[in-house]
């Protein structure tokens, strides 16, 4: 069975890699201007024949790569949060990252309306990190139980959400649409600058997270058991929370709030390869990447030349998925 399960993991990873390449090519071809696959290959590898350098190199390639990186990062972040909170319904949202980032962006629009839009990712990342830090601090003071951490996270997230609504309702911003588009999670108009700002960090953080997969397994057993197995639970938990926060906040900072990716991807991965994080994490990463690339490409293709935000599509599929989990998860909650 050991062989069976590692064989299964290898086949799953191979299959997902092919699927990822396929949806990636599709996302390069889909949009207001349809580009045939042959043209894409010609352009990417600089072969003879018809090319579409401008659309592919300037617009779709960086955008799809960004979708790929952020999808994988959100999935990893979700897998960490689910293990730490021992709650399969948890997601990066529950540690306040999305709400904090949204509030940060809006406040910047109010307080510094002249700020260059390129600073948006930085502001969003700071907002997300601050919200997460506030949650950790409160939860740490009040003894860190996973349940308490989740409750504090929800409370602080809601406070940020309320502040966002208040600002949107009362402000006289005539440029409200920019933060609104950002908040629904869109890759519209994202280019090489956004990609280059985050990919080295995301790749580095993901690599570190993969090294933590065994420790995540042990932490998933609960504080009592993990401690008795020789793990310094307090320290490892802080490191993992920091990794989850940075992965999600950096992603949210460039693509906005892509709901449900962090929730769905780890679940799909668990169905495919089981619950050990050594297999779960890489599979979840590929699944998350595929989800976001598909959502972005579908958003462009469905009503072209109009665009539907990727975040709207992930939420449309994610919300029913969430209900399905709630219904099918009653037995695990008792365990």
């Amino acid at each position: 069975m050991r062989h069976a399960s590692s064989t299964r993991l290898i086949w799953t990873l191979l299959g997902l890699t092919f699927a990822a390449i396929a949806v990636f090519l599709w996302s390069l071809s889909a949009g207001a201007v349809h580009i045939p696959i042959a043209t894409i290959i010609n352009t990417l590898f600089d072969l003879d024949g018809p090319k579409q350098s401008f659309i592919i190199n300037k617009s779709r390639l960086p955008r799809s790569l960004l979708a790929f990186c952020t999808g994988g990062s959100l999935a990893l972040s979700g897998a960490i949060v689910q293990a730490l909170l021992r709650n399969p319904l948890a997601s990066p949202k529950i540690i306040g990252i999305n709400s904090g980032a949204a509030l940060g962006v809006l406040l910047t629009f109010i307080l510094a309306p002249t700020l260059n839009l390129n600073w948006l990712p930085v502001v969003a990342a700071c907002g997300g990190i601050l919200a997460a830090a506030a949650i950790f601090t409160v939860a740490e003071i009040a003894t860190v139980s996973p349940a308490r951490l989740a409750l504090v996270g929800i409370a602080i997230g809601m406070t940020c959400d309320a502040a966002v609504d208040f600002i949107l309702a009362t402000s006289e911003l005539y440029e409200v649409s920019a933060p609104l588009v950002w908040m629904t999670g869109s890759l519209w108009n994202r280019g090489w600058a956004h990609l280059n700002a985050v990919w080295p960090l995301l790749v580095g953080l993901s690599a570190i997270t993969l090294l933590y997969s065994y420790r995540l397994d042990l932490i998933r057993l609960g504080t009592a058991q993990a401690t008795s197995l020789g793990l310094n639970v307090r320290r490892e938990r802080l490191v993992l929370l920091a990794l989850a926060t940075l992965l999600a906040a950096l992603s949210v900072s460039v693509v906005g709030v892509l709901g449900f990716v962090g929730l769905m991807a780890p679940h799909i991965a668990r169905q495919m390869v089981g619950g050990t994080h050594r297999g779960l994490l890489p599979v979840a990463m590929l699944v998350g990447a595929i989800l976001v690339v598909v959502a972005d490409a579908a958003g462009r293709a469905l009503f072209a030349p109009l665009e539907v935000s990727a975040g709207i599509l992930t939420a449309m599929f994610g919300a029913p998925f969430f209900v399905f989990l709630l219904l099918s998860n009653t037995s695990e909650a008792r365990g």
Binding site: L221, L229, G230, T276
Partner: peptide, 25 residues
């Protein structure tokens, strides 16, 4: 004891070996 999702009996018992393993398990 917390029952982790998607873990087999053998994998669970294997975690008992963690004190003798490195951090990659």
């Amino acid at each position: 004891p917390v029952v982790p999702p998607g873990i087999t009996v053998e994998q669970l018992v294997g975690y008992g070996r963690a004190p003798y393993q490195n951090l990659l398990g």
